[in-house]
Amino acid sequence: MADNRLKTVLITGASSGIGAAYAQRFARRGHDLVLVARNRERMEAAAARLRSGAGVAVDVLPADLTAPAELAVVEARLRDDRRIGVLVSNAGAALKSGFAAADLDELERLIRLNVIAVTRLAGAVAPRFVAEGRGAIVNISSVVALAPEIMPGVYAATKSYVLTLSQSLQAELGPQGVYVQAVLPAATRTEIFERSGLSTDAIPVMMDVGELVDAALVGFDREEAVTIPPLPELGQWENFAAARKAMLPNFRQEHAAARYRA
Rank of each mutant, 00 (worst) to 15 (best):
D3P: 04
N4K: 10
N4R: 13
K7R: 15
T8G: 01
I11V: 07
T12H: 03
G13Q: 05
G19I: 12
A20D: 01
R28Q: 15
N39G: 08
M43L: 15
A47G: 09
R49N: 07
R49D: 10
G53T: 11
V56R: 11
D59K: 13
D59G: 07
L61C: 08
P62C: 08
P62I: 10
A69P: 01
V73W: 00
A76P: 01
G85M: 11
S97P: 06
A100T: 14
A102P: 02
D103R: 06
D105L: 15
L107Y: 15
L107T: 14
I111D: 00
A117K: 07
R120C: 06
A122E: 01
V125T: 02
V125A: 03
E132G: 02
R134A: 04
V143Q: 02
L146K: 11
E149F: 12
G153H: 04
Y155F: 10
A156I: 15
Y161P: 13
V162D: 00
S166Y: 10
L169N: 02
Q176C: 04
Q176P: 00
Q181P: 03
E191Q: 15
E191I: 14
R195D: 04
S196G: 15
V205P: 00
G210M: 08
E211D: 14
V213T: 10
G219L: 09
R222D: 07
P232I: 13
E233G: 06
Q236S: 09
F240G: 06
A243Y: 10
E254P: 01
E254Q: 13
